[in-house]
């Protein structure tokens, strides 16, 4: 966008072309309509606006405080369910309470993986996700990868696909 030119103009009244001046005169002659707005309406509107503003500030502040608390109080946040260790006993208990055909299959998978012999992790990291950075050959001996690879009882296919490269490598 080009810069507007800086020129000094004398403060003279505008002399418009006659036709434009006619339109402007018609606009200036427009009578003020009767004002129906009352001070009470303004006051009520102002109070409602102030309440809404305060509520939104409060909500924003609370959200910020909650976010900060979450970050500050738990620096080592637990992993998400897909990466963390399975809550095997809890799932098993629920399955035991209501053994439906859909839940029987994952439940049978979970004990098998939990009972698998654990080998020491080479990275000595408690986070299962770090296993993914290991070489395929070392995955076979990493206990937490095994846990992680079969951690999702509801998606056994995913667990199988994760272990595929390791199997191929071995």
């Amino acid at each position: 966008m080009s810069r507007e030119p800086e020129h000094h103009h004398p403060d003279t009244r505008f002399e418009l072309p006659p036709e434009l001046a006619e339109l402007v005169a018609a606009a200036r002659a427009q009578p003020l309509p009767p004002i129906k707005t009352t001070p009470e309406q303004i006051y009520d509107g102002w109070r409602a606006r102030r309440r809404a503003d305060r509520a939104s500030w409060l909500a924003g502040g609370l959200a910020l405080a909650a976010g900060l608390a979450l970050v500050l109080l738990s620096p080592d946040a637990p992993l998400s369910s897909s990466q963390s260790e399975p809550a095997a006993p809890e799932v098993s208990a629920r399955v035991a309470a209501a053994p439906t055909p859909e839940r029987v299959a994952p439940a049978t998978v979970t004990p098998a993986t939990v009972e698998a012999p654990e080998l020491p992790c080479r990275r000595s990291s408690p986070r299962a996700s770090s296993c993914r950075r290991l070489s395929p050959a070392s995955l076979t001996s990493c206990a937490c990868w095994r846990r992680c690879g079969s951690s999702s009882p509801s998606t056994p296919g995913r667990a199988a696909s994760r272990s595929r490269p390791a199997t191929a490598a071995s």
């Binding site: 427009q30 129906k36 606006r49």
Partner: peptide, 18 residues
Amino acid sequence: DANSVDDLLQEVFIAVFN
């Protein structure tokens, strides 16, 4: 627009007091 004056007047004064 004479029909909009009232609405705008309310908006202006609410904003002013705010």
